[in-house]
Amino acid sequence: MTDYQEYLDFLYTALESKNERKLTLSETTTLVGDIGLSSLEVMEFIEKIEDHFDISIPLNILPDVNTIGELAQKVRELNF
């Protein structure tokens, strides 16, 4: 199993092209509020993660995911 930090690092890298506000990304950065992803961009980002780790991320978990840290944790759980 990959370490939590590796998931975080992957998410930071994958989000860089969408980081138009040039924020310093951290575990507490929110995807919608801080980075400003639209709902369509969130879904595209989720698909990118799914393909990379060969997992399916259920829609059910999305309401509980606001920050990059929360997403990394969920992906880690799903990739067990």
């Binding site: 879904m43 259920p58 829609l59 059910n60």
Partner: peptide, 10 residues
């Protein structure tokens, strides 16, 4: 699907 309680994958 939101009401179903099932795991939902798009």
């Amino acid at each position: 699907v939101k009401l179903s309680g099932a795991e939902v994958i798009r």
